[in-house]
Amino acid sequence: MLARDPSPADRQQARDNSDRAWAEAQQKSPKSRRIAATDSATVDLVDWLSENPDTIDCIQEIGDILAGPVIQELDKRFGGSKPREIRRQLNSHLWCDLLVAVAEAIEKLSKAMDRVPEYVTTVILQSRKAEGRSVLLDALVGLAVRTAWEPIKSMIHTTGIEEVQRGCRILAVLICPAPENHKAVQDGALLPLAKEGLLETSRERLEQVFPEDWVRRLREGLVGAE
């Protein structure tokens, strides 16, 4: 909604709030600084989207896939008598995991599209295990991936690989409940988006709060983009 608003007033307010939160976070914990830095990056992405309406449409289409047929299929197969519990598990970083892994899979397997669902499922399960996140049934993750992949694959043919990748990455950042703690989103979304969607101020803030290896890869990527 902020990105689509023709008036920049609310976006400027969001930026002012972000800058104030960053300044206040300097006297707080490292966690507060990470949150403020990733919020700054989110504000940059919203501003970038306001100037690139085609990407907004792409993100909306991807979001509708997740909120529509994917949720419906998961509710039908896994909702049972505790649909709220299943929804709670799904909101524990599954969607941003899925989006980041899809963007990565598109890049790596663009010539073998039929292998994407299997690859994405494996990446999500490995990522969640490595980050110590809640265990999800392999079948649940696999169903979510397969249901999302077919319409996303159709989008690739009509919208293009790069645009769908970008849309998945931006949406992953926007919907992630805590990107400052989600390594998959940091590496698979924020890092590649830094080249085009983030202002220097936000990149500098992220450099102050993220690990040295992440900062090194960010700088290497920026040099390669020049």
Rank of each mutant, 00 (worst) to 15 (best):
D16G: 05
H157W: 13
K183Y: 07
C176E: 02
M155G: 08
Q12W: 10
K31E: 15
V116H: 06
P6R: 05
G80Y: 04
G188N: 07
P6T: 03
T55L: 15
R219I: 06
D44R: 09
R77N: 14
V223T: 07
L222W: 07
E131H: 04
G142M: 00
E180Q: 07
F210S: 11
L109R: 09
N181V: 11
C96A: 12
R146F: 03
A37K: 09
Q60C: 10
C176I: 03
K195M: 03
Q126G: 08
A9G: 11
T121G: 04
D187G: 10
H93A: 11
T121A: 12
L198K: 01
V173S: 05
E162A: 15
C96M: 02
W22Y: 07
R84K: 14
L125R: 14
L125V: 06
E226Y: 09
A3W: 09
R133A: 07
P117S: 02
K153G: 08
L2R: 11
R115F: 13
M155Q: 07
V116D: 06
I71S: 13
N17Y: 09
I71F: 11
R219P: 01
E51S: 13
A25L: 01
V145T: 02
I59S: 08
D75A: 14
A148F: 03
Q12E: 10
L206K: 06
Q60T: 11
D19C: 03
L174C: 04
E73G: 08
A112P: 02
E180D: 11
S7Q: 05
L140P: 07
P179G: 03
K153W: 03
I35S: 04
I71Y: 12
K31D: 13
Q126T: 14
H182R: 00
W149A: 00
I62F: 08
R77C: 12
G68V: 03
G80M: 04
A105N: 08
E150A: 15
R217E: 10
R115P: 03
E207N: 11
L90Q: 02
A105G: 05
A105K: 05
P179H: 01
Q126H: 14
H93T: 11
G160Y: 05
E85G: 12
V223W: 04
V185W: 03
R169K: 12
V135D: 08
I124N: 04
A130C: 07
A144V: 07
P83L: 02
K28H: 13
I106E: 09
A103E: 04
E73I: 05
V145Y: 00
A139E: 13
P83K: 03
E118H: 14
K108G: 15
C96F: 00
E163C: 13
